[in-house]
Design a protein around this nucleic acid. Structure first.
Lengths: 408, 408
DNA sequence: ACAACTTTGTTTAGAACTAAAGGAACTCTA
DNA sequence: TAGAGTTCCTTTAGTTCTAAACAAAGTTGT
């Protein structure tokens, strides 16, 4: 859609902030090149940003053969973002600085099927924010396992949560008076990866998330692809085995029925590799301890995944694949099956595609959610639309540290 | 990467022209909405465009409840584009108007392995242009079966043509003094589809091309995706059969070895459905004439294709799939296997994805190539880069009809 | 037939941005 | 140690675009 143009809001001011936050300190000249604007504009905007207390001048970087650059850094405490991950039985919160570093985090039980879940959710977020540092909150990012309406207003369909047209975005917006960005959890994670993770160095990559299921995030030319109806990346339901096991989606033989967590656990239990009541953690432990049968379960899954993912890499042509999720704890066991099969199945010209594993923590999902907020100043027009503009304006208006003004 | 902004060249002037060309006449208000600029700007730029003879005012459209709109139309003869398709043994040319209509076309034998192929190519294009209508040529689009360097300068690698780092773009640019845009043929076709075909009504869709092989074009949010190294859409080499038939790519059991033209022909010959020396055309005729064995060969292929394509649709979430290529002549036979399998394999929420067949002519490939030129004013910064800017400037400078000035 | 409403198109002041030219601060070469 | 070359940053004048207010040309309701 003939991408936008000038004027209206100060997109570039925010782009500078986002760039400094995401990529670390940089000189004015660096910024001009990176954002593809004239040095003149950077000079002028940086002057304002310094006056506003959002940016400060740091040390000189060594000369590159000419006048040495004066590096600029983000005053990362100038604004914070909150990330929220919604799971069927609990909520996970984080508060992060502009550069993505986690300030604090929390977990809380939650009942996604409760009749009063919307109020409960709102109060939980209020509670988390109130316990905060006093630094103004720019917005709330919410990661959900499911799909969001295309307009990005935050109305959620989720099979896992058993939600249908659930107005998460509108409700939180009304209760909190803050910008709220709702997105599929896998896409949110891809966004975080692009801003703060390995993806920082690639414009076009795939994120593969291994958890209870498998998911795919598609990032092309620096943009997270959402598909026609916000449902891109559903690799878990790629058809694999004709007339295979019945999948939760109603079809038979989806990838998830073969290499999903439940499938691995069942296989392990049937083979008595782990006790009947044990789960994936026990299986991972067994493999770590050298149990050959446990290792084989993972490497078999790796081989299957390899062929499917090779197909996607063939079609999508990414520079890199990044592996994420709770399941990465067992990745080294997956890899023994995955790696040889993956390489052997790729076109010769793609065979060098790196597969990198990102370190995973309990807070990673919520961190991904927070990245939704921090990413908004980045898109010129922006998926984020109205909410993105609100985040931008809050960022620009942020007062000198000290005074707070959340809500409103 | 923080999409660009204002200034520099008159991007929007060209966007107006492209929009009018691609979507037909529209009012000023329509244009403002479509291009996401202010009505004020449209008023001003249209004034200039009318003065330049590139746009004219047409009839009034009926009122929508307020002041009726005065529609604007492109003076489509204001500039032409040339499209060139390169095949191993021949070249196909078309000259099109700004709205994509074909003015004239030509074919010419060609030897892609000749030592003097570059000069030959240049002279062939010169010959075609010189035989033209006298309307200024905005640029040359070249569609090749292979990959182009990421910078878009037009250096080609092609297995089919047996080319390695072949400087098609630089050579033609030097010989002709015109903007030259080189792109993979499948991607060029996707671009044409987006500008002038069924894809006009969808922002996010797949094009499936069936010819000697199968190819995929990915269009998301109106942009043709090229992948990290310009090789996106290689569905022909998705791994399908473990330890299957050896493929030209060096791997075994690629999709192409199962449903590629050569494979169908072999199967038909082995079963004596067609004579030993006959090809796909004979097989199609047999199926058309009611030969059940021929029909089954196609429907079997359709079933296989359905499962692979369902996987891609799962991952990519397009609004629509468009089928193109010489092979569409037999699509109704493919479809009897494809349709039921495709629907049954998709997620319930995707099951309604339309699969539409575009009408196909001998000139379609070259028309796709020409669309490369006509699309350049559309991208804000643009894949097209330098060449796109040149096309834009030629479009703006186009004189009142009459005077010509190609080269230089 | 008149006001109220809607949509289209135009004008004007001002914001966002660029290009071009030049000053500032350093390195390299002779 | 002087000049030539680089890279970084700033200033100035001018372009592209927006926002806001308004004029134009219709439809609809009473």
């Amino acid at each position: 859609m003939a991408t936008r143009s000038t004027g209206r809001t100060d997109v570039t001011r925010s782009a500078i902030l986002a760039r400094l936050g995401a990529q670390g300190p940089a000189s004015r000249a660096d910024l001009a090149r990176a954002l593809d604007v004239s040095p003149a504009l950077i000079t002028q905007l940086v002057k304002e940003l310094i006056a506003d207390g959002l940016v400060d001048e740091r040390e000189h970087s060594p000369s590159q053969g000419g006048r040495p650059a004066r590096r600029l850094g983000l005053v990362s405490s100038a604004g914070h973002a909150v990330g929220l991950k919604i799971a069927p039985d609990h909520l996970a919160f984080v508060e992060v600085e502009l550069d993505g570093t986690v300030i604090r985090s929390a977990q809380e039980p939650f009942d996604a099927s409760s009749a009063t879940l919307l109020e409960g959710l709102g109060h939980a977020v209020e509670g988390f924010i109130d316990g905060g540092s006093g630094v103004p909150i720019l917005g709330i990012g919410v990661a959900i396992p499911g799909t969001v309406d295309a307009q990005g207003s935050g109305i959620v369909d989720s099979y896992q949560l058993d939600w249908n047209d659930m107005p998460i975005g509108p409700t939180l917006r009304r209760m909190l008076g803050l910008p709220v960005l709702v997105e599929n959890n896998v896409n949110a994670l891809a966004m975080a990866e692009r801003l703060f993770g390995i993806g920082r160095n690639h414009a076009t990559f795939l994120t593969l998330t291994i958890g209870t299921g498998v998911g795919l995030g598609l990032v092309m030319d620096g943009v997270v692809l959402r598909g026609g109806s916000g449902g891109a990346g559903e690799i878990g339901h790629v058809p694999l085995v004709a007339d295979g096991v019945l999948c939760s989606c109603g079809n038979h033989g989806c990838l998830e029925t073969v290499i999903g967590q439940a499938s691995l656990e069942r296989r392990a239990r049937d083979a008595a590799v782990i006790p009947q009541r044990a789960g994936i953690a026990a299986l991972t432990r067994a493999a770590d301890d050298g149990d050959g049968r446990a290792q084989e379960i993972f490497s078999d899954a790796g081989r299957v995944l390899a062929r499917v993912l090779a197909g996607v890499v063939q079609v999508f042509d990414p520079e890199s694949v990044i592996v994420l999720g709770e399941g990465t704890a067992a990745w080294k066991h997956w890899a023994s099956g995955f790696e040889p099969e993956f390489r052997a199945t790729l076109l010769p010209s793609r065979r060098g595609v790196p597969v990198e594993v990102e370190t995973w923590t309990d807070e990673s999902w919520a961190q991904g959610a927070a990245a939704l907020v921090l990413s908004t100043p980045f898109d010129a027009v922006g998926l984020a639309g109205e909410q993105g503009r609100l985040v931008r304006s809050r960022l620009s208006v942020v007062p000198k540290p000290g005074v707070q003004s959340h809500g409103r």
